[in-house]
Structure formats: C-alpha cells, structure tokens
Simulated scan of single mutants.
Amino acid sequence: MFYKPEDGHGLPHNPFNAIVTPRPIGWISTRGAEGRDNLAPYSFFNAVAYHPPQVMFSSTNAKPDRGDTKDSIANIRETGVFCVNIVEYAMRDVMNQSSGPWGKEVDEFDHAGIDKAECTTISCPRVAAAPASLECKLTQIVQLPGAANFVAFGEVTGVHMRDDCLVDGAFDVTRFNPLTRLGYKDYSVIREVFSLTRPGE
C-alpha cells in the first residue's frame, strides 16, 4: 500500500503514529505565570543534543481556553521553563489520567493524585516519584506547518535520578521499565535490553 497524506489513507485510523514507534513519552510539567501547575504527556518527545544537553517536545492540538495551543506551551511562553518527567510502567494509569482535556485551572498533579516536588534550578514542579526528571530552560519555540503545531526546545539545567535506578554507576532502565507510545490507543513497555558495540569503539 502507498498513500499520500494529502490525499488520505482510506483506513479506519491514521497509521502514521503506528509506523513511527516506539516513541518515548515526555511527561511535561509546567507552571504558569499565575502559579497554576500543569502536567501532561507528549509522545513527540526526544533528546536532541549532548553538549549542552537539550531536549524537545511538540504539541499538536489546541484548547478553547488557550487559543492556538495547549496548557504546556502556553505556560512555557509565560515562564520560559519546563520539566520533562520520565514515565515508568507503574505510573501508566496516572499518566493517562493527566492526559485529559481539562481546563487550564485544573492541576493534573492534584487531579490524578500525583505527588509533586519543586525543581532545583527552575521555578517549576516535577513528578516526585519519577525515575528521572530533566529541568529545562526554554531555548526556542518553533511553529511547524499546521495551526497548532509547536515544538519547544529546552536546555537541561538540572537532572534528577531516582536512587533505585542507579546500578553500578549507570542509569538502569530495567529497574523501572519505561513506558513507550505506539499508535492508536497502544503502548509498550521496555523490559529487555541488549548491548551492541559500534564499529571503531
């Protein structure tokens, strides 16, 4: 099968997300200028640079109470900071609960019963029990083609790692089983890890 996105695929559901898988989930926490906290998962998320360490996530929808975007991007526009929390399998249900189309006045930490902690280098909350959290200072927001498509890039200014995830000096993902996003309503979990040595190393 071949299709051009502009012409449609003719399938019951869009296969694009199912093709680009698995995708890490960035559970983005922010705080607006008025002090309201927000937490939402994004599956268009990844690390993009080592020195200095940088990450990105993109928001692709809008809410009536936020104009051209959603709470996360709106808050980041106001404050210039955000935190990326890594999602473990054990937190799948509360992560999903935080993904609802709640009004901007709703604190998803409270709504889903998620314990929060303050970040160290930025004024922003983080998921207290997350395996890892990356405190980020906004570098730029880029608008992509499409009315509500925005990518936020951030420089990582602080890194939290849960002590039980450190094994012999390495951050061990098998200790918490990262949750990943597939297509449709599907997710997957990482339980098996293997190593390969790159040629020349």
Rank of each mutant, 00 (worst) to 15 (best):
A62E: 11
R92G: 02
W102L: 12
R126I: 03
E108P: 10
R181Y: 01
N75L: 07
E155M: 09
P41A: 11
T197W: 04
Y89E: 15
L134Y: 15
E155V: 14
L196E: 09
R126Y: 08
H160I: 11
T157Q: 12
G32Q: 07
V167T: 13
D186M: 09
V127K: 11
N85T: 06
S29H: 00
L179H: 06
C119M: 08
M95V: 00
D7K: 13
A117K: 00
I28D: 07
V20P: 07
R66H: 11
R31P: 01
Q143D: 02
L166S: 14
A132V: 06
I73M: 11
C83N: 10
R31H: 01
A170S: 14
R191F: 01
F171H: 09
N177T: 01
Y187D: 14
K137D: 02
D7A: 02
R126W: 07
C83G: 02
I76N: 01
S195A: 10
R36I: 02
L39P: 01
T21M: 06
G26Y: 03
S133K: 01
K116W: 04
R191S: 14
V87G: 06
R191D: 13
A62R: 11
L196A: 08
S29K: 02
L182N: 07
A18H: 09
P52T: 04
C83T: 08
D115F: 10
Y50K: 11
V48W: 03
Q97T: 00
D172F: 14
H111C: 11
F109I: 06
T21G: 03
V193G: 10
I122A: 00
I19Y: 02
A148C: 05
I73N: 09
G8Y: 04
G8W: 03
C136F: 15
V151Q: 05
I86G: 05
G158L: 13
A117H: 06
A47I: 08
Y89M: 04
K104M: 04
P125M: 07
V189K: 05
G35F: 05
K63P: 00
G26D: 04
G103K: 15
D93E: 06
V20H: 05
N17F: 12
P199Q: 11
E201G: 13
V167P: 10
A47W: 00
A147T: 03
L179T: 08
G169T: 09
R77C: 10
L166V: 14
E201L: 15
A130E: 03
Y42I: 09
W27K: 02
L196M: 07
D110N: 14
P131A: 12
D7T: 11
G26C: 05
R77T: 03
E192T: 11
S72I: 15
A130I: 06
N75G: 00
V142H: 09
T121D: 10
V127P: 03
N46V: 03
V87I: 10
K70V: 15
G100Y: 15
L39T: 01
Y184C: 05
A170V: 08
P199H: 05
Y3F: 09
D107I: 02
G10E: 04
Y89S: 14
Y50W: 15
A130G: 08
